[in-house]
Amino acid sequence: MKKKIYFAGGCFWGTQAYFSLLRGVVNTQCGYSNGTAKNPTYEDVCRGNTGHAETVMIEYDDSMIKLDKLLTEFFKTINPTTKNRQGNDIGSQYRSGIYYVDDADINTIQEFIENKQREYSRPIVTEVLPLLCYYPAEEYHQNYLDKNPGGYCHVDLNLIQKDDKIRN
């Protein structure tokens, strides 16, 4: 069964590139979520007054990869104890977040975070909220690192285990 989850992990270029490599992920898309502006542009979001986070929609085949595994991979790519910052990117649009569309996922997410908190001395500040709104980002942001292999990325794409990759 195909399912969706939305991850905000700083700059969406690296998050999209990372999850597009995972076996069982069937589609990814960069966008803006959980803000107040309708149909924001990248420039709108960068001004910091829309409330949107740079977010990646992840569509996955639940028979091939489970939400727990996606969460494990997501936490490899973020610092969940920093607010409004990932890597060199600073601002509320770069906050970390998990935005769900299936209410059945909330228990898995909360349990995962409770267990993960044991690994950190500082509190996890990653948002966990229902997806309130989502707008696809402009085309030039989609699969940006495939189009621009030398582009900036705070995510280490080599963290994916070889067996989990769809391409090496």
Rank of each mutant, 00 (worst) to 15 (best):
Lys2Val: 13
Lys3Ser: 01
Ile5Glu: 04
Ile5Tyr: 01
Tyr6Leu: 02
Tyr6Glu: 00
Ala8Val: 03
Cys11Arg: 00
Phe12Trp: 06
Gly14Arg: 03
Thr15His: 02
Ala17His: 07
Ala17Trp: 03
Tyr18Asn: 00
Phe19Thr: 02
Leu21Arg: 14
Leu22Cys: 11
Gly24Val: 09
Ala37Arg: 10
Lys38Gly: 11
Lys38Leu: 13
Thr41Ile: 04
Tyr42Arg: 05
Tyr42Ala: 09
Cys46Gly: 05
Asn49Met: 14
His52Thr: 01
Thr55Phe: 00
Thr55Ser: 01
Thr55Ala: 05
Ile58Lys: 00
Ile58His: 01
Glu59Thr: 07
Asp61Ile: 12
Asp62Ala: 11
Asp62Gly: 13
Ser63Gln: 11
Met64Tyr: 10
Ile65His: 10
Lys69Met: 14
Thr72Met: 10
Lys76Thr: 14
Lys76Gln: 14
Asn79Ile: 07
Pro80Trp: 06
Thr82Pro: 14
Lys83Val: 09
Lys83Ser: 10
Arg85Cys: 07
Gln86Asn: 10
Gln86Gly: 07
Asn88Arg: 12
Asn88Leu: 11
Ile90Ala: 09
Gln93Phe: 08
Tyr94Glu: 01
Ser96Trp: 02
Ser96Phe: 06
Tyr99Ile: 01
Tyr99Asn: 06
Tyr100Arg: 11
Val101Asn: 08
Ile106Asp: 00
Thr108Met: 13
Ile109Trp: 11
Gln110Lys: 12
Gln110Thr: 10
Asn115Gln: 07
Gln117Cys: 08
Gln117Ala: 08
Arg118Thr: 11
Arg118Asp: 15
Glu119Met: 15
Glu119Asp: 15
Tyr120Ala: 14
Arg122Gln: 14
Ile124Ala: 14
Val125Ala: 14
Thr126Ala: 09
Thr126Tyr: 05
Glu127Phe: 14
Val128Ser: 07
Val128Pro: 01
Val128Thr: 03
Leu129Gln: 15
Pro130Leu: 06
Leu131Arg: 05
Leu131Glu: 04
Leu132Ser: 13
Leu132Pro: 04
Cys133Trp: 04
Tyr134Pro: 02
Tyr135Arg: 06
Pro136Phe: 01
Ala137Ser: 07
Ala137Pro: 01
Ala137Val: 02
Glu138Ser: 09
Glu138Cys: 06
Tyr140Met: 10
Tyr140Lys: 13
Gln142Pro: 07
Gln142Ser: 07
Leu145Gly: 03
Gly150Trp: 04
Gly151Tyr: 06
Tyr152Trp: 09
His154Ile: 05
Leu157Met: 15
Asn158Gly: 11
Asn158Ser: 13
Asn158Glu: 13
Leu159Tyr: 05
Ile160Lys: 02
Gln161Glu: 12
Lys165Tyr: 07
